[in-house]
C-alpha cells in the first residue's frame, strides 16, 4: 500500500487534492481511500489530508502515521508543521516552492525532494487569488510526475469532473506536471 499525506492551509484544497489523486489511481484500477485529518478545519490554519492506494482491497481504516510520500501545498508550512514526521526511509517529499530542491533537501534532511512552482501556475490559470491561491490541481499534476504512481491522463480525467473551472484546473495540472523538478535534478 502507498500512503500519501498532504499538508496545506484551510482553503487551498488539500482535501480535494487527496480525493483527486485517489480518483486518478481508482481510474487505473486501484483501490483507494481519501480522507481529511479528523480535526476542525479553519481557513488559513494547517490542514492535513490522506490518500491510500493499493492493488488489493484496503481494509485499514486508521490515519496515516508513516507516509511513503508527503505533499506540501504551501512552503510557509515548513516553519509551522513537522511535515516529514514519520516519513518512511527513502520517502518522497513534493513541495510547492520556487526554491531549489537541493536547499530544501538539506533543510529537511530528506534525500528525495521534488519541487513545483504551483502557486505561479495556479495564478496563471486564474485559480484563487494572490492571497489565497488554489493550488490543489497543480500539485496533483506534479504528484503524478514526481511519484510516477498515475498517468497525467488519469489525473486530467479526475480533474475534468470538477464542478467549477474544470478546464482551467486541468490546464494547471498539465503545466505543473511539465514543470516539476524531480529529485536529483532528473
Amino acid at each position: 500500500m502507498i500512503e500519501i499525506r498532504f499538508h496545506g492551509r484551510g482553503g487551498q484544497g488539500a482535501v480535494v487534492a487527496s480525493q483527486l489523486f485517489a480518483d486518478a489511481a481508482f481510474l487505473e484500477g486501484k483501490d483507494v481511500q481519501a480522507f481529511p485529518y479528523f480535526g476542525v478545519e479553519r481557513r488559513g490554519a494547517p490542514v492535513t489530508a490522506f490518500t491510500k492506494i493499493d492493488s488489493d482491497k484496503i481494509r485499514d481504516k486508521a490515519m496515516i502515521y508513516e507516509p511513503d510520500i508527503v505533499v506540501v501545498l504551501e512552503p510557509s508550512l515548513l516553519q509551522a508543521v513537522n511535515v516529514t514526521e514519520g516519513l518512511k526511509e527513502g520517502g518522497l517529499v513534493l513541495i510547492n516552492t520556487e526554491e531549489d530542491a537541493k536547499d530544501i533537501s538539506e533543510r529537511l534532511g530528506v534525500k528525495n525532494v521534488a519541487t513545483v512552482g504551483a502557486t505561479k501556475i495556479a495564478l496563471a490559470n486564474k485559480l484563487g487569488s494572490r492571497v489565497q491561491p488554489i493550488v490543489n490541481t497543480a500539485i496533483v499534476g506534479a504528484l503524478a510526475k514526481a511519484s510516477g504512481l498515475v498517468s497525467i491522463d488519469s489525473v486530467l480525467k479526475a480533474v475534468l469532473k470538477l464542478p467549477l473551472y474544470a478546464d482551467r484546473n486541468a490546464e494547471a495540472a498539465k503545466q505543473a506536471y511539465e514543470a516539476t523538478a524531480l529529485p536529483g535534478g532528473a
Binding site: 480525493q19 483501490d31 483507494v32 481511500q33 481519501a34 480522507f35 481529511p36 479528523f38 481504516k61
Partner: peptide
C-alpha cells in the same frame, strides 16, 4: 456508520 472514518472518507 462511524463519524469521519466513513462519513468523510472517500472510497470506491
Amino acid at each position: 456508520q462511524d463519524a469521519f472514518y466513513l462519513s468523510h472518507t472517500s472510497e470506491p
